[in-house]
Nucleic acid binder design. Structure first.
Lengths: 206, 206
DNA sequence: ATTAATATGTTAAAATCTAAACATAAGAAG
DNA sequence: CTTCTTATGTTTAGATTTTAACATATTAAT
């Protein structure tokens, strides 16, 4: 219950809880239980209760959890009880897709700008965004106060872009380039690489 | 070293090792060490040695690991010493992006077909692929012997598509729809949802 | 040839994480 | 009002995972 130090592995599960709860809310559900949530997610009910208990007492014994209330609490914990502006770097297929992606609404994020360094792309529009010159990346995002970025450039450019982002004040990076990037310890970094996921599954095939 | 039972968490790290090793190979490196690999990945050297030792003795004491040899060994372990045909379901931004994605080559995968159910899209081309009618999904992939699929349809369709895929013989699913899917225990499933990754990072911001 | 340095593979210890058990509170039923 | 059922939050035990330590093998240097 106290503000000790929460294991990162627990933090990693909270967004999953949140997503399932929001889905239930869309189904007009009011109450759920650790058991139901666990079945939806393939996680034990005990695990879910234990995780949540690290942050407070959000349920009611004999009844379960009030869905809207628990959503609110998890959003507060994860700091997504607000909308974060996010920058996209790279206007290829992945970057363009991210700029157009409708899935960030209600999740706490909004794409605010997109950059590329290709003169043929700069100035063009993707959805409502005009592709900006990544030469001005650091300055522009600093002025805009942007703290979160998604990298969708070729692997060879990813480290350079990350450095520019950090220089511009970014604190969290989601990297779609299939390469490990080196960042200072106070910078959050996460990776999305479909091949990594696929390879993890092929081990179990055949 | 023996064929006991390898923890899944170890399997999850092998693709990361492989990716870094392949990167080193592109840099024309021949030898590396658990320490160097660990530094690139932010994993302890002991961890890497321990993981690899579960499968065999791939290094040489006093010297390190031969990069091409270790790549070959990990590829064999993960069953990516071959090319797997993969099907994409959903020809929206994400699905189209996956069909055009150049990043699967040398990673063990190749997009083989793409499906959608929208009559306006069926028959159209994405890269070299003609979008096929997902009405025939199960039959077509069964005939083609496809075992791996990526789902890129709206959340509301994801479970239905997954069921069709499993009916068609698919054994591993990478789901881009931001929703938990229920599958039998012998089916592998992994998720890609950028909001999940972003929310995991915002916890540490502010 | 001997010594020193290096880096693996393995063993043992420490730390972390998960699962199970249970006491308690809330609500429903009789 | 009492009893029964349900489901939480917490405690305890068990399992897993990570880290550290070390013996051994290889290479390089003197």
């Amino acid at each position: 219950m106290s503000e000790n130090k929460i294991p990162d592995i627990v933090i990693g599960r909270l967004p999953l809880y949140l997503r399932s709860l929001q889905r239930m809310q869309q189904e007009n559900r009011i109450i759920t239980s650790s058991q139901e949530l666990g079945e939806r997610l393939g996680i034990s009910a005990a695990q879910i209760r234990k995780d949540l208990s690290l942050f407070g007492e959000f349920g009611k014994q004999g009844t379960g959890y009030n869905i809207p209330y628990l959503i609110e609490k998890i959003q507060q914990i994860l700091h997504v009880d607000r909308v974060w502006d996010v920058v996209v770097v790279g206007a290829g297929d992945i970057g363009s897709g991210l700029a157009r992606y409708q899935g960030f609404s209600n999740r706490g994020f909004r794409v605010a700008m997109i950059f590329d360094r290709d003169p043929l792309k700069i100035g063009a529009k993707i959805g409502n965004f005009i592709i900006q010159d990544s030469h001005n990346l650091s300055e522009t995002i600093r002025k805009a106060g942007i703290k979160i970025a998604m990298i969708a450039v070729p692997s060879s450019e990813a480290q350079t872009v990350a450095n520019q982002l950090i220089k511009g004040g970014v604190r969290a990076i989601l990297n779609y380039a299939p390469i490990s990037i080196s960042v200072p310890p106070h910078i959050q970094i996460q990776y999305i690489d479909p091949s990594i996921h696929l390879q993890r599954m092929t081990y179990y095939l055949e």
